[in-house]
Lab assay of single mutants.
Amino acid sequence: MGKSNSKLKPEVVEELTRKTYFTEKEVQQWYKGFIKDCPSGQLDAAGFQKIYKQFFPFGDPTKFATFVFNVFDENKDGRIEFSEFIQALSVTSRGTLDEKLRWAFKLYDLDNDGYITRNEMLDIVDAIYQMVGNTVELPEEENTPEKRVDRIFAMMDKNADGKLTLQEFQEGSKADPSIVQALSLYDGLV
């Protein structure tokens, strides 16, 4: 993909415009910024974590950033290329609610087996709590990752089998306004 070129080839721009919710001009602008920050044309896990640390200076986002990195890194080569970056950004910032929920499901399904187990969710929720640090005051019933996961599973795990399917996750998330709101945070920002 033209590693350190400051412009993408027209056919690449066209393809990314088809695969995302961005215009050709927006794709070019994002590429310019991506190459400025990642001259090699790729972003590794350490660089990704560094970006998260800028956004969450009062907590430790390392663990959460690693989980997000793994979802962005579609081809699992340990690096995020621009096409992976822009497609994930498109879903998280401008995707439909169902697209965002499928993306979030992939984030929580750490072993990619098609289910979110209690332990997988606990890993992610714990990482989120570490990331936000003491900057967020949580209600008593959610002031630990374990309590939050218990509440989520009580609401979403309809067949009580200890794991969530994509359908259970989507339906449960849509029924909880706070989850829908959290997924909409990026709307309109890009």
Score class of each variant (00 low, 15 high):
G2Y: 00
E24N: 04
T135G: 06
F34N: 02
S178I: 01
K100A: 01
K9F: 12
D157F: 12
S4I: 05
V91K: 11
L101M: 00
K163E: 11
A65P: 12
G188W: 07
V13W: 15
E84I: 00
N112R: 03
W103L: 05
L16S: 15
P177R: 02
K174D: 07
P145C: 10
P145R: 02
G114E: 07
K76R: 08
I179V: 11
P177G: 06
Y129V: 01
M131I: 09
E14S: 08
Y186F: 11
S90P: 13
F69G: 14
K106G: 11
K19A: 00
F67I: 09
E142V: 11
E15W: 02
A45G: 05
R151N: 02
A160H: 15
G188F: 07
S178A: 11
F169R: 03
Q29K: 15
Y129D: 13
P61Y: 04
G33P: 02
R94Q: 12
M155G: 11
K50D: 01
Q49P: 08
K53N: 04
D109E: 08
R79K: 03
K25G: 11
E140S: 14
E26Q: 13
G172F: 02
K25V: 10
D161I: 02
E15R: 11
K3I: 15
T23A: 11
D113H: 13
S90D: 12
D113W: 04
T66V: 03
D98I: 03
F82Y: 04
I128K: 04
D60S: 01
E26H: 15
S173R: 01
K76A: 13
Q54Y: 04
K53A: 06
Q87N: 05
T117F: 09
E14G: 14
L89Q: 05
D176S: 03
S173K: 00
G47E: 07
G33F: 03
T144E: 03
K9S: 00
S6F: 02
I128S: 05
Q54S: 02
D161E: 11
G133H: 15
N119M: 01
L138H: 12
G47L: 12
T20W: 00
N134T: 04
K100C: 01
L43T: 11
K106Y: 07
K7M: 03
I128G: 00
R102F: 15
A127S: 06
R118I: 08
F69T: 04
T135Y: 10
Y129H: 08
A104W: 02
P61L: 10
L138E: 04
G95W: 08
K158Q: 12
E99A: 09
K3T: 15
Q87A: 02
L107A: 03
K53S: 14
P57I: 12
K63T: 10
A154W: 03
G78A: 02
E14I: 10
S90H: 15
G59L: 09
Y31A: 15
M156W: 14
L185Y: 05
R94P: 00
V136D: 03
S83T: 05
D77H: 09
L164P: 06
G162E: 08
Y31F: 11
Y31C: 15
M131L: 07
V125R: 05
K25S: 13
F82M: 06
Y52Q: 06
F22M: 02
L43R: 12
G47W: 01
L16I: 11
I152M: 09
Q167V: 11
K76G: 01
D126S: 12
L97A: 05
T62P: 05
N119Q: 08
P61H: 08
R118C: 00
F55S: 03
A88E: 10
K100L: 13
V136M: 05
S90Q: 00
K32L: 04
K63C: 08
P10G: 10
I124C: 04
G95L: 02
N75T: 09
S93D: 07
D176A: 05
K163S: 04
S4H: 05
R102K: 13
D113T: 02
D44H: 06
A182F: 07
K63N: 08
I86W: 00
E171A: 07
F85R: 00
F153V: 07
N143G: 07
K50Y: 14
Q181C: 14
K25R: 11
D126A: 12
R18S: 06
Q54E: 06
S184T: 05
T144R: 01
I80D: 11
R118V: 03
K76N: 01
F69L: 11
E141M: 07
N70T: 01
L166N: 14
I128M: 04
P61E: 04
E171K: 05
L138Q: 01
A104K: 13
Y108I: 07
T23V: 05
D77A: 14
E24S: 08
D126T: 13
W103T: 15
S4C: 15
V91D: 06
F105I: 02
V180F: 07
K163Q: 04
K63R: 09
D113V: 11
K50L: 05
I128T: 07
A160S: 09
F69S: 12
K174T: 13
T20V: 12
E26W: 15
P39H: 00
F105V: 10
S6L: 01
D150E: 06
D176R: 04
K147A: 02
N134F: 06
A127W: 06
T66N: 13
V12R: 04
F22C: 13
K32T: 10
K25N: 12
E171V: 05
P39I: 00
P57W: 04
E120I: 11
P10K: 04
K147D: 08
D109A: 05
E141K: 12
F67V: 09
V149P: 01
A45V: 09
D161V: 13
D187S: 08
L101V: 11
Q28M: 05
A127D: 04
Q49L: 06
Q167F: 09
W103A: 09
K100E: 09
Y21G: 06
A154C: 11
P139R: 06
E140I: 06
A154S: 07
A127T: 06
E11A: 08
A104F: 05
R151S: 14
G78D: 06
E26F: 02
G114N: 09
L110Y: 00
Y21R: 07
A127I: 04
L166S: 08
K3M: 15
P39R: 06
I35F: 10
N70L: 11
D111R: 13
L164A: 14
S173F: 10
L166H: 11
Y21V: 07
L43P: 12
L189V: 04
K50G: 03
V180K: 14
E14V: 15
T20D: 12
L101Q: 04
K63G: 02
I124Y: 01
D44K: 04
F22A: 00
K32F: 14
S83A: 04
L138F: 08
D150Y: 07
A182T: 10
K174Q: 09
E120G: 08
A154N: 05
D123P: 13
A88L: 06
A65C: 09
M155K: 03
D60Y: 10
F105P: 02
Y52H: 09
K106P: 03
F105W: 01
Q28H: 06
E142S: 09
W30M: 00
G47Q: 11
K36T: 02
Y52F: 12
E146I: 15
L8F: 06
D37W: 06
D109W: 13
G162W: 12
E11R: 04
I179F: 11
K50V: 06
F85M: 12
R102V: 00
K3N: 15
E11Y: 03
D37L: 14
S184P: 08
E146S: 09
V125M: 06
F67A: 13
F48C: 13
T66S: 08
Q87F: 03
K63W: 02
L8N: 14
